[in-house]
Amino acid sequence: MKPTGFVVKKNGVMLQDLNGLIYSSIKGSINKQGEKYIDAIVILYNRSNLLPIAVSKPDIKGRYQFLNLYADLKTFIVAFDQKQQYNAVIQDNVVPK
């Protein structure tokens, strides 16, 4: 599955309304064979309903972040290689800090 047709912003685009107290974030980086990698789309999903919460693109140092999240939100992250040289990478059980 290849995501298409959405706008990507540096801090991430919120796709789901998370009503309530919001004060945490998720930060990480993308690497390809030990080197920072910027040609990816990173999508944060809600584990409870499997819907996307936000979309981000790594900065020039391969870092991404999702801001303004519930501290107890259960998520997983999927990173897609835009050059389609590698399969998607999944990180499960990610909790904002």
Rank of each mutant, 00 (worst) to 15 (best):
K2A: 12
K2G: 07
K2I: 15
T4Y: 14
F6H: 08
V7A: 11
K9H: 10
K10V: 15
N11F: 13
N11K: 06
G12F: 09
M14H: 10
L15N: 04
Q16H: 05
Q16Y: 01
D17V: 10
N19H: 05
N19Q: 10
N19D: 05
G20C: 04
G20A: 06
I22Y: 02
I22P: 00
I22V: 09
Y23S: 11
Y23K: 11
I26F: 14
K27W: 10
G28C: 07
G28W: 14
G28E: 06
S29E: 07
I30D: 02
I30R: 01
I30T: 11
I30P: 01
N31W: 08
K32N: 13
Q33N: 14
Q33A: 15
Q33V: 15
Q33D: 14
G34N: 13
G34E: 07
G34H: 10
E35Y: 15
K36R: 15
Y37N: 12
Y37I: 14
V42P: 00
L44Q: 02
Y45S: 00
N46I: 04
R47K: 07
N49S: 01
L51C: 03
L51Q: 13
P52K: 05
I53Y: 00
S56R: 06
S56L: 10
K57A: 13
K57F: 09
K57L: 05
K57M: 07
D59Y: 13
D59H: 14
I60T: 11
I60Q: 13
K61T: 07
K61D: 12
G62W: 09
R63I: 09
R63Q: 10
R63S: 09
Q65I: 12
L67Q: 12
Y70G: 03
Y70R: 05
A71N: 11
D72M: 04
L73P: 05
K74H: 07
I77H: 02
I77D: 00
V78H: 01
V78D: 00
V78W: 03
V78E: 02
A79P: 02
A79C: 05
A79N: 04
K83T: 15
Q84M: 13
Q84T: 15
Q85R: 06
Y86C: 11
N87L: 12
A88E: 04
V89P: 00
I90W: 12
I90L: 06
Q91N: 03
N93W: 07
V94W: 04
V94I: 09
V95T: 14
V95L: 03
K97P: 13
K97Y: 07
